[in-house]
Design a protein around this nucleic acid. Structure first.
Length: 513
RNA sequence: CGGGGAGUAGCGCAGCCCGGUAGCGCAGGUGCUUUGGGAGCAUCAGGUCGCAGGUUCGAAUCCUGUCUCCCCGACCA
C-alpha cells in the first residue's frame, strides 16, 4: 500500500479538534481577531456563509416571511420583561453603559463618568424582546395576523469557552419571529420552519439531520416547545444545527402583543422564533471535511469549478489563458441545482500544482488543470474533490475533452453533492444504536466508543421537574446530553431506561458540541 | 469562570533553566537549472520575542500584572 501524502498535517483520527482548526486556517476560512470569541471571516469562509444565506433566504421568502431589521442595542427595561428569558441569558450579556470616552491623562482613553447612560443598553443575544415590542405596535386586528418576520443579524453572547464557527461570542444568523392568532397556527409555523431547516441542511448543505423536539431541560428560555435538527459530526458528537421554538403567549404577554379577534375580544398572540447561524459552517466542516481539508458541497461552494492553467511565464501563456477562458465560458453556460455554474479561472501567477493543493484544502468540488499539452489535445485534467486519490496514491485526474468537461460538469456536481450526503448519512446510520435497553448498556456503549461515541436512541418516560433533573444529572456524569425526540422514531414499546416506568417515546442521547 | 498548556518572521518550532543585542524548517522574493503533475540548487528579504510595568550596566530569557489562543471542567437554544 502506497502512502498518500495528504494536504493537511493533522488527520481527523489523530486529533479531531486540532484537525478542525487546521481546516479552518488552511482553507483560509477565518482567523482569530484578537478579541476574545470574535473571528475574522475571510473571503472563502464568508463566501460559503453567503451561499447559505442565499439558499436559506430563498426558502424563508418562499414561505411568505418578510425580512426586516431591528436594532443591535436593546434597552435593559425592554429585555427584562420575560422572566425565563432573562434568567436564561442574563449571565452572558454584553452591556453598553457609556456613550463617550475621555483621556485618562496617561495617553489612554476611559469611559467618561459624565457620559453614563441613564439606562444601560444590552447588545442583543437574540431579538425576541425588541421584535415583540414592534409587534405590539404593528398588530391590532386579526387581519394583521399572521405576522411573519425574519432578520439577518449578528448577536452577542458572552461565551466562556469559544470555538471558531461553533461557539463564538459574536455570531451571525437569521432569526425568524412570527405572531399568530392561535396556538395551532403558531405550532404549524414552528414545524414549518423546522421542516425548512431540515430541507436546507439535507438538500442544500448535504448534512443529514434528525428532526425532533427537545426535552424540557433543553428548551429555549421562555419557550413552551423547542425543536431542533441534530447532525452527527465525524467524531461522533452531535451538533444542533438549527432550532425552532413555539413560544406560546408568554412573550406576547410580556410585550403586550394583542389583537382583536372577529368577535371583538382582545387576545394575546401566539409567537414563534427560529434560527440558523454561522454554526452551520462549522457543521459543514465537521461533516464533510477529510484529511485533505474542506469539502464544500457544490450547492454551497462559492466556486464550483476552479480552472488552473499551468502558466510558465513565457509566450505560451496567452494562448493557454485564452483556451482556459473558452472553457470557463462554456462552463458558465451550464447550470446545476437551478443556478448558473460558479466558475473561477485562477490565473494568478504561481505553480498550478501548488495552487491545486490550495483549492483542495479549500474544498472546491471540481478542479480542472490545463497545461500546454492538454491544450494541444483539446483536453483538461479534471479532479473531483470527493474522489481525490487513485490506487497509486496520486491525484486521480481524468483527462477529458474540453467540451465534455463543460457538458459533464453539472452531472458531476450533482454526483458530488449526492456523494457527500450519502457518505454522511451512511456514517450516521451506522453509528446510532437503537437496541440499548438499560442504563448499564448505555454506559457500556459510550465507554466502548470513547473515540467515536456515536448516538443512542433510547426509550424513556419523559419525566418532568425534579425527576428530569435527576436523569440529566446522571447523563452529565457520563458526559452525555439529550439531543431530541426524533419525529420519525419508532413508537415506544418498552420501559424507560432511566425511571423504569413505561416508556412513552424514544430520545437521542449523545455527546454534543 | 476553575485547572492545565502556550504566545519568538506568514505558518510550524528551537533558544528561556544558567540574562550579553535572535535561529531552524516550510512558505515568500531574485537568479540559474528543471518542468505533465505537491521540482532542485544558490541567494535575498522578513522579528519593537503578545502587551505593560519592574529588577539589571544590559531582559526573548528573571519578577509582577494583563490580553489572546489551545485542552479539560463548569456554563451554554
Amino acid at each position: 500500500m502506497i502512502a498518500i501524502r495528504h494536504a493537511l498535517t493533522i488527520k481527523r483520527e489523530d486529533d479531531f479538534a486540532q484537525w478542525y482548526q487546521e481546516v479552518i486556517s488552511s482553507a483560509d476560512m477565518a482567523e482569530e481577531s484578537g478579541v476574545r470569541g470574535c473571528m475574522v471571516i475571510k473571503p472563502w469562509g464568508w463566501g460559503i456563509w453567503e451561499r447559505m444565506q442565499h439558499l436559506m433566504d430563498r426558502r424563508i421568502k418562499a414561505a411568505g416571511v418578510q425580512n426586516a431589521y431591528f436594532p443591535l442595542f436593546i434597552p435593559l427595561s425592554n429585555f427584562v420583561r420575560e422572566a425565563a428569558h432573562v434568567e436564561g441569558f442574563a449571565k452572558e450579556m454584553a452591556v453598553v453603559t457609556h456613550h463617550r470616552l475621555i483621556s485618562d491623562g496617561k495617553g489612554g482613553l476611559i469611559p467618561d463618568p459624565e457620559a453614563k447612560l441613564e439606562e444601560p443598553l444590552i447588545v442583543r443575544p437574540t431579538s425576541e424582546t425588541i421584535i415583540g415590542d414592534a409587534m405590539s405596535r404593528w398588530i391590532q386586528s386579526w387581519r394583521d395576523l399572521p405576522l411573519l418576520l425574519n432578520q439577518w443579524a449578528n448577536v452577542v453572547r458572552w461565551e466562556m469557552r469559544t470555538r471558531m464557527f461553533l461557539r463564538t461570542s459574536e455570531f451571525l444568523w437569521q432569526e425568524g419571529h412570527t405572531a399568530h392568532a392561535s396556538a395551532e397556527d403558531a405550532m404549524a409555523e414552528t414545524l414549518r420552519a423546522l421542516e425548512m431547516y431540515r430541507a436546507f441542511a439535507e438538500e442544500d448543505a448535504a448534512i443529514p439531520v434528525v428532526v425532533g423536539e427537545k426535552p424540557a431541560n433543553e428548551r429555549f428560555p421562555g419557550a413552551e416547545a423547542t425543536f431542533s435538527i441534530e447532525a452527527m459530526m465525524q467524531d461522533g458528537k452531535a451538533l444542533q444545527a438549527g432550532t425552532s421554538h413555539y413560544l406560546g403567549t408568554s412573550f406576547a404577554e410580556a410585550a403586550d402583543i394583542r389583537f382583536q379577534d372577529r368577535e371583538g375580544t382582545q387576545q394575546f398572540c401566539h409567537t414563534t422564533s427560529w434560527g440558523v447561524s454561522t454554526r452551520m459552517v462549522g457543521a459543514m466542516i465537521m461533516v464533510h471535511g477529510d484529511d485533505d481539508g474542506l469539502r464544500v458541497p457544490p450547492t454551497l461552494a462559492p466556486f464550483q469549478v476552479v480552472i488552473l492553467p499551468m502558466l510558465r511565464e513565457d509566450d505560451g501563456d496567452a494562448a493557454l489563458l485564452a483556451y482556459c477562458e473558452e472553457l470557463r465560458g462554456a462552463l458558465l453556460q451550464q447550470s446545476a441545482f437551478g443556478e448558473p455554474l460558479r466558475v473561477l479561472l485562477d490565473a494568478k501567477p504561481g505553480k498550478a500544482a501548488a495552487k491545486r493543493w490550495d483549492w483542495v484544502r479549500k474544498g472546491a468540488p471540481l478542479i480542472v488543470e490545463v497545461g500546454p499539452r492538454d491544450m494541444a489535445d483539446g483536453k483538461g485534467a479534471v479532479l473531483r474533490r470527493d474522489r481525490l486519490w487513485n490506487d497509486a496514491a496520486k491525484p486521480d485526474f481524468a483527462f477529458t475533452p474540453r467540451d465534455e468537461i463543460a457538458a459533464k460538469a453539472p452531472a458531476m456536481l450533482d454526483e458530488i453533492q449526492r456523494a457527500l450526503f450519502e457518505q454522511a448519512a451512511g456514517r450516521r446510520e451506522a453509528n446510532v444504536a437503537r437496541d440499548i435497553d438499560s442504563l448499564d448498556a448505555l454506559k457500556a456503549f459510550f465507554a466502548e466508543n470513547q473515540r467515536f461515541p456515536g448516538w443512542a436512541e433510547v426509550q424513556w418516560s419523559r419525566p418532568e421537574g425534579a425527576a428530569l433533573d435527576k436523569v440529566v444529572e446522571q447523563l452529565k456524569a457520563l458526559k452525555l446530553t439529550f439531543r431530541n425526540v426524533p419525529a420519525n422514531a419508532a413508537p415506544a414499546d418498552g420501559k424507560c431506561l432511566f425511571t423504569g416506568e413505561a416508556a412513552v417515546e424514544r430520545i437521542l442521547v449523545a455527546r454534543a458540541y
